[in-house]
Simulated assay, not measured.
Amino acid sequence: MGAASGRGALVAALLGAALGSVRAEPSPHTLAEVLFCQPDTPSQGLAVAFDAEQLFSFDFPSSQWLPRLPDGPAWPADTEQPHELQHDAALCRDLRDLLTKIATGPLPMPEAKGIPVADVFLQQPLQLGHPNTLICMVGNIFPPAITISWQRNSIPVTDGVTHVTYTPTEDLAFMRFSYLAVTPRSGDIYACIVTRERDNISVVAYWVPQDPVPTDTLATAVCGAVTALGILLALLGLGLLVSSCRRG
């Protein structure tokens, strides 16, 4: 009862904060807490998400709650203590082992729902030569067992990489984010490689910095185009005038 009442208080607090400014016209929202255990790696995981945006995850090896962002608020101290979650995880593992024994053979691993979908984009507007962050967003993940790696110009990159744990989605799948600190330069080719080791499937999403046209260059080009169009229209009008005079 203590865990349930604590979870209810957390739900009320989160929903109150999110919907406080729109109480007159409420819209549907989803607060999900998903615990999984599986034969794949990671063998277990837990995440709390609000409208598919991860708020917290639980790190089982260190037995602690982690906020989605490093500077995010801490998990409420009186809600779902680590020992309660370790008990739930143990129950999940016991249930998995029991079902495996009941089955005629080893319990089949969860069927893959589909090919993961990856997209890569910049966190901030592009400025060549300035530090930025590449984000690799991977969706349509099931089961939650993939690895994400980065390459720059076909060379593996490990420095500046930050992976986020799995986030549950409303379609009973998962999504995951990976971040890479970069300094974009012309000619670079970045690749986010998503691998599902169970069936050796890999998906690659590329990102190439596109040097934006400088504002003054763009303004000059637009001005030149407008001037040329004006001259063309003036010549067309003069031609029509001469043609009309000849007919008269």
Rank of each mutant, 00 (worst) to 15 (best):
P76H: 06
Q44R: 15
A90C: 08
Q38R: 06
P70M: 09
D88M: 09
D78L: 12
C92T: 05
P108R: 10
A112P: 06
S62T: 13
A89K: 11
A49H: 04
N140A: 09
Q123K: 14
G139Q: 07
G45K: 06
A118G: 02
L128N: 03
F121W: 04
P42D: 04
P116W: 05
A49Y: 02
P61D: 02
K113Y: 08
H130C: 04
S149A: 15
Q81L: 15
D78G: 07
H83C: 04
K113I: 06
C92S: 08
G114V: 07
F50P: 05
L128E: 04
A103T: 07
P67Q: 01
V138C: 03
M137E: 11
Q44S: 11
V120N: 00
S154E: 13
A89I: 04
G129T: 09
L126I: 09
I148G: 00
P61H: 03
H83Q: 14
A49Q: 02
W75Q: 08
D97T: 07
I115E: 14
P67V: 07
P82V: 07
S62C: 04
F142M: 08
L95H: 12
A32R: 11
Q54K: 09
S63Q: 15
S57N: 09
L107Y: 03
Q64H: 10
N140K: 08
A49N: 05
V157A: 12
C37A: 15
L122I: 03
L31T: 11
